[in-house]
């Protein structure tokens, strides 16, 4: 097939940047990475990009195609070439470019290290018995365990763009992988650390991370799980956590969000008073609905009773979020095999 690409070339030593056109023949099954290899071998040996495994597991070849991060080795070019499209290839976003398609991952790794991505079981010596963990409990962190550290999720992260110190989707998903691990003994300390500035509650929920991840890690979902786990452990000092809690209170008391009270409940009364001038400017246009009398939804009692029921049933934290996920197919399987194993044991 005939393939055409535009590639943003960049040299950080000279600061020169240029969009270059390339056209060449490639086998029908070629991926974007294969195409870059052809360009480098036959047209321009100075083109720089990272690669290693060529099979979606090393995470080296993250880059942007038409502004969206992809793994080059996962992206087949046939349909794009057949449609006559000429995609623009550039380096990933939110990280400094070293040369052409190569970014400096130092900040990415630093954040990854900051969440201490290793198991901290809380004991030094090996126990006499194995610690057996059910597949059901590991299913809570099934998606998070699939991460290959390619950085695609961070490339378009809107919070990271606005605040370079944000821990970011990759490191937070990795953090959830250990917070949710039943063998880890540091859950509360981890959650405390992640609940501060630049942590869990800085996520703006743009969902670019989950959209871009080539491995189905779903980092936004992982961040929601961290939030749910923090709440479960009573770690709710952060304004983001207070904001989330007020929605629960609103839903179970009046049904609809109690908008006007949301500000003092999130920011505290002192900060809310500082915002009085701003609030008044909104109030002029009916944007600050009076909290009294409360606007109560019809049959509100049902929502209140549901809350009580749900709390009694105790499906809380990340376990509440993974309900209905595909990973639960595995849980059902485990339930069956565990049941069968017990049955067998009893028979003996």
């Amino acid at each position: 097939m005939q393939v055409a690409l535009k590639i943003w070339r960049y040299d950080s030593s000279t600061g020169q940047r240029a969009l270059k056109d390339y056209e060449f023949q490639a086998p029908d099954e070629a991926t974007l990475l294969d195409c870059l290899d052809i360009v480098k071998d036959k047209h321009d040996g100075s083109l720089s990009y990272r690669k290693s495994c060529r099979m979606m597991i090393c995470g080296s070849c993250g880059m942007r195609m038409d502004g969206g991060a992809v793994l080059a080795c996962k992206t087949r070019m046939y349909d794009i070439a057949q449609a006559g499209q000429i995609p623009v290839i550039s380096a990933m976003g939110n990280l400094p470019i070293v040369k052409d398609l190569v970014v400096d991952m130092a900040a990415f790794w630093e954040k990854m290290r900051s969440v201490e991505p290793w198991l901290q079981p809380g004991y030094d010596a090996a126990t006499e018995q194995e610690n057996i963990v059910s597949v059901a409990r590991m299913a809570v962190i099934h998606k998070e365990s699939l991460c290959i550290n390619c950085g695609c999720c961070t490339s378009e992260c809107n919070s990271l763009e606005a605040d370079p110190d944000f821990t970011g989707p990759a490191a937070l998903a990795k953090a959830m992988r250990f917070v949710g691990d039943p063998r880890d003994g540091n859950t509360v300390e981890r959650l405390e650390g992640l609940s501060g500035e630049h942590g869990i509650w800085d996520c703006t929920r743009c969902y670019f991370c989950s959209e871009r991840c080539p491995k189905g890690v779903d980092p936004r979902d992982a961040i929601a799980k961290l939030g749910a786990e923090a709440m479960k452990h009573g770690i709710d000092r952060d304004m983001g956590a207070k904001h989330a809690k007020w929605f629960v209170t609103s839903a179970r008391t009046t049904g609809w969000l109690r908008e006007t009270e949301l500000v003092p409940k999130t920011q505290g009364i002192v900060m809310a008073i500082k915002e009085t001038k701003f609030a008044l400017s909104l109030a002029k246009h009916g944007k600050v609905p009076p909290p009294f009398p409360p606007h109560v939804a019809k049959n509100q009692k049902e929502a209140r009773q549901l809350y009580k029921l749900v709390k009694e049933q105790g499906v809380s934290g990340a376990a509440g979020i993974v309900q209905g996920e595909k990973a639960l197919g595995r849980i059902e399987f485990v339930k069956e095999t565990e049941h069968a194993a017990k049955h067998e044991g009893a028979a003996k």
Partner: peptide, 23 residues
Amino acid sequence: LESVTCCGAGDIHEAEPDYYLHI
């Protein structure tokens, strides 16, 4: 619809995920 509540705006999903599902 009248007998309905807030959808939770993503906040209840994060704070009380099982309640989010129920409402």
